[in-house]
Amino acid sequence: MGKKTNIQLMVDGRRIDGRLPEQLREIEMKIGEIENADGSARVRFGNTEALVAVYGPRSLFPKFLQESDMAILRVVYSMAPFSVDERKNPAPDRRSIEISKVTKDALSGAVFLEEFPRTVIDVYEYIIQADGSTRVTAINAASLALASAGIPMKDLVAACSVGKIGDVLIVDLCGKEDNYSESDMAVAMMPSKGLITLLQMDGRLTKEEVLQLLKKAEENCKKIYEMQKKALLEKFKVVGED
């Protein structure tokens, strides 16, 4: 984030991986690859790939953790040791703990937790390969996994990253852009409601620039939302009988 570098992030209107400023990477969404899970999904944005499994609602012990009138949602975000350039220690680091926490907030707002008092819904996110924007990729997968587990929600949650290189706004940051762009922002939202459930930004932006980036994020969350819906409908299409 905003580290000094000699790397040219933008050359002749093209980004370091050849994309146009507002171009998303190749996106793949697969549902139901973890047989044991109540719901699961794998989402890939270019070379960033997240596998997410949902277990629950299930009973929660020890009992003092239970909420008598609602379920609790727990999120664990973790990265495979081999997902990054230099091997990552598999123990949770501060970054992962923070991401787990903000992701929990981002998803809890969309789930009807009050329907399952005293239980827990566990969301486990595992990054298989990381090339920027891992938290938002994982949120996209988590939302699919929750829906495919039959968990009631107000809307799917779609997420993307946006940022700024020089005067140019970019979407779906890759690893180098994540590290070296001047400003970046992670956004998750319930697209059909226009409600933002996750927002993290750092850099140095004017208020107007923040709002411009938010609008870009909203536009792209809507695109991703359409892909999520398509992936779910394809997986669960039912041929009528009788």
């Binding site: 903000v102 929990k104 907030d105 809890s108 707002g109 922002m185 939202m189 319930m190 409601k193 226009g194 409600l195 933002i196 459930t197 996750l198 927002l199 993290q200 930004m201 750092d202 850099g203 140095r204 932006l205 004017t206 208020k207 923040v210 709002l211 938010l214 609008k215 909203e218």
Partner: peptide, 15 residues
């Protein structure tokens, strides 16, 4: 200039 934003809690915001 805005240097950091973090949304906290499970509530939501419109733009």
């Amino acid at each position: 200039k805005i240097c950091a934003i973090q949304k906290q809690g499970w509530g939501t915001f419109h733009i």
